[in-house]
Simulated scan of single mutants.
Amino acid sequence: MAPDEIDTHPAVVAAGTLADDLLAPAAAEVDRTTVPRSHLDALAAAGLLGVSAPVAVGGLGAPPAVVRRTQELIAGADLSTWFVQIQHHTCAPMALDAGREDLARDLASGRAVAGIAFSHLRRRPARLVEAVPDGAGWRLVGDAPWYTGWGINDVALLGGATDDGRVVFGVVPAREQPGLTASAPMDVAALRSAVTVTLHLDGLRLRPDDVLLVDDVEAWARRDARPSANPVPAVFGVAESALDLLAARGRRRDEPAAVEAAERLRARVLEVKAEVHHLLDEVDPDAQMPRRLRLRARAQALMVECTTALVVAGAGASMAASDPAQRKAREALFLLIQAQTRPARSAALDAFAR
């Protein structure tokens, strides 16, 4: 799609409006408190919780370039809200593939908001959460280290590993119940307001209708590795929003060095983003993995440069809890490790050590 077609797509226009009028103005308060469900409801009302969901279940079925741009705008405005809602988009396609059209429709419309806990499956052969057969269903046993949106979302998509090399995914209500309890919210340096907890699974039962996928672990891992080899759109969203703030601060203070820094950094960000989008749109998703990982690392390093420049330009004022510079810097730190795999970590360490 041409850039003007992307920018004028109704989903992108809606995301930009919500980013400017709701998410960005409230971001400092959200950072200090908790992502409000009303933010997610506003995204749902605009169709953005179903932006990538199939039209058949009430989603927008937007092209990938449009989906990416909406995620950049949401993340650039408020990364905490972005992080809660990005978990949601995994669940509707899986529900539809499993024949759960009722659930897929609820998810695509935002009547139900999903969270996910399956990143621990990437640590194979370790099995932090075991899936044990239980008649026609399954039971989950173990600790899922990361679950975001506890107390905010409605359903939880959980993953476990069997002892014979399979993965099991099931969806349950996102609340404490027999076999499921949650830790206290994690005291983390960034995105505390997204309410991330550890889920303790003590024989949580997945009924047959709760199960959305049972698959070979290696087949699942190959599919899972595709998106994590590329930078998430939020990296560009945080970088570009930091540059917008940097340029505005330079103009307001009549400091040409800040404006010039924003322009030079933006050119570098756009160059990397164009290369990333070429790989995403025109190259087989399983091809050129080393190049993808290098670009992911470059994009992350540039994001850190952008947020660091914003901190520098603000001088001592950047340390105020009310100043967006320190929040952007913490958001960048978070995105260095979000959706991280061992290959991505190695590529990033190599890039930072050069």
Score class of each variant (00 low, 15 high):
W220H: 01
V214D: 00
V217R: 15
E255N: 09
V232E: 11
A257C: 07
A234F: 07
D244Y: 06
P256Y: 06
V211E: 06
S241D: 10
P256V: 03
N230V: 15
V235N: 01
R222P: 03
D224H: 12
A221K: 13
A257W: 08
A258W: 10
E240W: 03
L246C: 09
A248K: 06
A258V: 00
E260R: 12
D210N: 14
R207G: 12
V232L: 13
A258Q: 07
V232I: 14
V232Y: 11
F236Q: 04
P208I: 13
A242S: 15
A239E: 11
V238N: 03
P227T: 02
A229K: 03
R251Q: 10
A239N: 11
R223N: 12
P256K: 01
V235Y: 11
V238K: 08
S241A: 15
L245M: 08
D216V: 02
A225H: 09
D215M: 10
E240V: 11
L243R: 01
S228E: 14
S241G: 06
A248T: 09
L212C: 07
S228I: 13
A229Y: 05
V214S: 00
V238R: 08
A225G: 11
L243I: 08
V214G: 07
P231C: 05
F236W: 01
D216N: 12
V217A: 15
V211Y: 02
P233R: 09
E255L: 13
D215Y: 03
V211K: 08
E218T: 15
R205F: 03
R249S: 09
D209R: 13
V232K: 06
R205K: 05
G203R: 09
V232R: 09
N230R: 15
V217G: 13
A258R: 00
P233I: 03
V217P: 07
E240N: 07
R252A: 15
V217N: 11
G250H: 04
A234I: 02
V211M: 10
V214H: 04
A248Q: 13
V232F: 11
D244L: 10
F236N: 01
E260A: 13
A219E: 14
D224E: 15
W220Y: 13
R249F: 10
D216T: 09
A248Y: 02
D224I: 03
A257K: 01
G237F: 10
F236A: 03
E255A: 15
D224T: 02
A225L: 11
